[in-house]
C-alpha cells in the first residue's frame, strides 16, 4: 500500500469516527425529544383527566339544586343554576376534546376495527343532534345509504368524526337551514365509501380550506367570535380519517354553505 493510501485511510477513519459521534448525538436528541413529547402528552392527559373530576362534582351539585332536590327554586334562581350546568357541560366538552386530541396524537391512537353499517351510525349521531337542530329549526336528513355494504373501521373514531362534522354543520348554519348526509361509492371496484356532510350555512372561503383542518386554527380567532371552541375538532377528525387511510376535505362557497367529504375503505365482501 502506498503512503498516500495510508494517509487517506487514516483521514477516512477519523471522519467516520466523527460522523458516528454526530449520529450518536443526533439519536440522543431524538430520544430526548421523544421522551419529552411523551411526557407532555402524559401531562396533558393527566391534567385533562384531573380537571374532569371537580367539574363533574360542580355539575352534579348544580343539577341537584336545579332540579329542586334541596327545595324549590324560583325562576330566576333556576335560570342561574341552569347557567352553571350548561357552562360546566360546555367546559367538560372542551376538556374531552383536548383529551381526545392528545390521545389521537400519541402512540395510543390505534384502530379497533369492526364491521358496521354507516347508515345506522349516521342515524345514531343524527338522533343525538336532533334537539340542537330543532332549536334552530334546521332539518337534518340522510339522503341515501340503506343498501350500503358494511365498512371495516374503528366505530368509536368514525362516530367522533361524524359527530364533529354534523355538529359543525348545525353550529354554522342559520335558523331554518338544511343539513344533509349522503353516501356514494368510489374507486375502480367501488371499494371506497365517500361520505358527504353538507349544509346551507355561512360557508368557508377557499383560502381557508386547509386552515380549518389545522390544530388550534379557527377562521375567526378573535375573542369576540360568535362560535367558541378548542379549534381541535376538525384536526381530530382529519387524524382519525387518515388513520384509516382515508381522506377528508371541504368544498364550500361563502354564504352558500359547505360540503365536507371523507372516504373510508368498505369491508371486503364475504366469500
Amino acid at each position: 500500500m502506498s503512503m498516500s493510501h495510508r494517509v487517506n485511510d487514516a483521514a477516512l477513519t477519523k471522519r467516520l469516527t466523527a460522523l458516528e459521534g454526530k449520529a450518536r448525538e443526533a439519536q440522543k436528541t431524538i430520544d430526548d425529544l421523544k421522551s419529552r413529547d411523551a411526557l407532555k402528552t402524559q401531562f396533558l392527559s393527566n391534567i385533562s383527566h384531573d380537571l374532569r373530576t371537580p367539574l363533574a362534582a360542580i355539575i352534579t351539585h348544580a343539577e341537584i339544586l336545579r332540579d329542586g332536590m334541596l327545595g324549590e327554586l324560583n325562576q330566576k334562581q333556576r335560570d342561574s343554576v341552569t347557567g352553571i350546568v350548561n357552562g360546566g357541560q360546555q367546559l367538560l366538552d372542551m376538556i374531552d376534546e383536548i383529551l381526545t386530541y392528545v390521545r389521537s396524537a400519541s402512540d395510543q391512537a390505534t384502530l379497533v376495527r369492526t364491521e358496521f353499517s354507516m347508515s345506522e351510525l349516521v342515524d345514531q349521531v343524527k338522533l343525538l343532534n336532533q334537539s340542537l337542530a330543532a332549536k334552530k329549526h334546521l332539518t337534518i336528513e340522510r339522503l341515501n345509504g340503506d343498501d350500503l355494504p358494511l365498512v371495516s373501521a374503528d366505530r368509536d373514531k368514525i362516530k367522533h368524526v361524524l359527530a364533529n362534522l354534523i355538529g359543525n354543520a348545525i353550529k354554522f348554519t342559520n335558523n331554518g337551514g338544511r343539513v344533509w348526509i349522503s353516501f356514494s361509492r368510489r374507486g375502480r371496484n367501488e371499494e371506497e365509501l365517500l361520505v358527504e356532510i353538507g349544509d346551507t350555512g355561512r360557508g368557508i372561503a377557499r383560502e381557508h380550506y386547509d386552515l380549518v383542518f389545522r390544530e388550534f386554527a379557527q377562521v375567526d380567532a378573535s375573542p369576540s367570535r360568535p362560535h367558541h371552541g378548542t379549534g381541535l375538532g376538525l384536526a381530530i377528525a382529519r387524524r382519525f380519517v387518515e388513520l384509516h387511510d382515508g381522506r377528508i376535505w371541504v368544498e364550500s362557497e361563502l354564504g352558500r354553505g359547505s360540503r365536507f367529504f371523507f372516504t373510508l375503505p368498505l369491508a371486503a365482501p364475504r366469500p
Binding site: 373530576t53 363533574a56 362534582a57 352534579t60 351539585h61 341537584i64 332536590m69 334541596l70
Partner: peptide, 17 residues
Amino acid sequence: DSPLVTDAFSILFRESG
C-alpha cells in the same frame, strides 16, 4: 376516590330516600 364527587352523590341519593 374523589370526595368532591362522593359528597355530591351522597346528597343526591339521601335526598332521593
